[in-house]
Design a protein around this nucleic acid. Sequence first.
DNA 1: GCGACAG
DNA 2: ATCTTGTCGC
Length: 229
Amino acid sequence: MATYQPLHDWNVTPTEAVALQQQLRSQIRIEPLAEPPKTIAGCDISFNKFEETVYAGIVVLRLDTLETIEEAGVVSTAPFPYIPGLLSFREIPSLLQAWAKLKIEPDVVMFDGHGTAHPRRIGIASHAGLFLNRPTFGCGKSVLVGKYDEPALERGNWSPMKHYGEVIGAALRTKNKVNPVYVSPGNWIDLETAIALTLQCDGGYRIPEPTRRAHNLVNALRRGEQKIS
DNA sequence: GCGACAG
DNA sequence: ATCTTGTCGC
């Protein structure tokens, strides 16, 4: 029931995908939130090695209590392969199917990957943000592009990630003495807010709760331990 | 040309 | 991402 704007077809070749990114990047807006968010969604996909079937899921939580208030999952197929820099073409199609099953329209969406911390500044969080037309940001577990100085070891510290001289994201410590996560704006949000939201979604683990729960959901789906909701 | 390379 | 048990360190 949640809606989105189908800006373009997903049936493209890698070369066409890069051209689409170049064309879409100008539509991305990096700015503070217009409204204080009450709900946040986490997204993820899972699959069996060498298989084309993908399990996509979205979990919606209240930002104040981190209580899960809705889950949606789908079993789909990914026609596009994983190619560094083109992750959105593999994951967004099935995530949109899960999105369409949501009754709640989340105020902000967190992605397992990057937003502006991308060679063309349009990672999965930014690309999806254009379709969803609402605040989105990325929180990845490793770097695609960019250099940074190691942030201080205590939770909450962060240092800017730079690429060709520009700040594209942040290496953020979400837990004491544990490797940082990499946060970057997707669309309709700024870096500072994305960092604050990531810290607000703390559940005691390195990975913030929205993504962690979405990951658990899709893995349960893949193993047949969970019915499609 | 070589190495890197989100999930 | 996924395949998998134990094990080193705080």
